[in-house]
Amino acid sequence: MLKYIIRRLAMLIPVLLGVSILAFSLMQLIPGDPARSMLGEKATESQLMQLREEMGLNDPYIVQYGRFLGSVLQGDLGESIKSKEDISVELLNRLPATIELTMFAMILAIVVGILAGVIAAVKQYSWFDNLSMTGALFGVSLPIFWLGLMMIWLFSVKLGILPASGRLSNDVELNTITNFYLLDSILTGNWVAFKDVFTHLLMPGVALGTIPMAIIARMTRSSMLEVMKQDYIRTANAKGLARHLIVFRHALKNAFLPVLTVIGLQFGLLLGGAVLTETIFSWPGVGRYVYLAVLGRDYPVVQGAILIIAIIFVLVNLITDILYKYFDPRISYN
């Protein structure tokens, strides 16, 4: 098992190398000149030339890439063209906000999605089944930005019960330790802040979690329906086991494998979804940072963020693969 994990971690190297090449070339292909965007429209040609020379933009691509890769390997993602801030530091500062939001959305999606899927399968064709699966169909079809805006309109503008933006109200104090605000408020026993953080998380969490929730619910339902027909479920019934043992121990553990695959994939997609959600809810995370960087042609920031997101994506996939083994002992990694 350990061998497998090490091998998988080693495989990260070529994957990330590929990602770095893609991130680098993408930024070369996009029209626009960083030197011009830094100096503005009024800059003279000689000023531009000088800056390009300073930034190494006149060097061959391969040299530029080598330089980029060299500093990335030292943990240096360069500095922002716009703000001159260190990108690694900026990304690390924003990462907890994004991870907190995606984790919140994912846990919401997993808990509600699986529960709804299981009940829908066990009570197939009941009103609950019909209602939840119609709901799931809507869930996968709703664009995140539309759902987000509608929720802001209803809960913030009309009803005024949930905050429309940010992670924490201005008048609420919170000592940060991990920068995961929900965790920090628990660690410091600050329940006022906990409630405030939670209400801030609610809408962006739901907006982000709706699509994975709907997909997980549908996957769980169909997988459960398949498993409930298996011989070992008949055996479990013939043993006189209680219904909840049959459904949750015997059926769900078998039905979970395809659901796990979906969860892993959705987690990666969630990181993309976070760009939209964070923008709508002014969430100070990586997504919003990237969005602003793209608008401002802040190439190094975009490159750095792509790399970070790719690393997270690959790690989530690795965790998914390791979890397979827990849910299905027949899987062997040797």
Binding site: Y232, T235, A236, A238, K239
Partner: peptide
């Protein structure tokens, strides 16, 4: 079921739950 009248089935390949240990399946009964 399982106490006074029990049953064994045709295909032992599919009649046992593949993701639970034999111990778990036995002691739960």
């Amino acid at each position: 079921r399982g106490k006074e009248i029990s049953m064994i089935f045709q295909d032992p390949m599919t009649s046992l739950n593949p993701v639970l240990t034999v111990e778990k399946q036995m002691i739960e009964t």
